[in-house]
Amino acid sequence: MLNFLFTLALALPQQPPPAAPATQASTAQEPIPDPLQKELLALAGEFNTARHAYDQRLDELRKAGESDPSALPPHPSIAFWPRVEELAQRGSIGARLWLALQFTAAHPGLEGAARDEAWRTRVLAAVEACSNSTLERDLVRAFTSLYLDAPPALVDEALLDFVKRTKQRELAAEALYRGSLARPRGSKGLASIQAAEFEKRLQQDFADSAAARAARGEPEVGLAVGKLAPDFVAKDADGVAFKLSDYRGKVVVLDFWGFW
């Protein structure tokens, strides 16, 4: 899961979602790209291959009925740790995210308060690096998986730190939404301690965001039938600015046309 996120983070072009409503385009400020993108991608490719082989080996052992944990091969993130850390020290943003996400897998011997404190440092470093970079969308996604195994207080703290740092309102809202959804489900999955506060803050401070709308059960913004039409601001023939949302409460025919 974490590995998948990492792959996603590096493989996807870092662009805003398609057909973003006008409200999103207004928060223009160029996100910082990873300065070591190329090296990072190469290392990620290598790691993914190793991870794939590891997963296959685990599967084979499980099928063979192996239950002794000491017979299992070491997790590949242990061997990769020093290399990724070196990349992080040279300023790679993605490497910092990887260190936060792979922390426990790479340190199987570490437990208790010492583990939590070291993990906290890694997660907060990832938040600092990823905020306002091209990887911040990946960081926001990562919060959800962090809630599955990191101490919830730690993730809550990191999430709030991100909300404070980011200049992207939509992403701040999405982070709060993900935090508000982090409630115990089944046997696995920890609760966010502040889930209720996150939910309240989402609706108070980010009411107009896509995440807040989703939380309210309102339709998602999009251009297909059944979706909420993206809002826009335009000037009419008299030079008066108007918004599509000014027409809530009315049936609207929106006609893209021309005499040509």
């Binding site: 006008a22 385009a25 251009l223 979706k227 039409a229 049936v251 025919v253 929106l254 893209f256 021309g258």
Partner: peptide, 22 residues
């Protein structure tokens, strides 16, 4: 606007309900 909405053929018409849903 046509670009933001990805409109490539004209005329293109959307009918929205009172909630703003297409």
């Amino acid at each position: 606007l046509p670009r933001a909405w990805g409109i490539t053929s004209f005329p293109t018409i959307f009918v929205l309900d009172a909630k703003g849903v297409i």
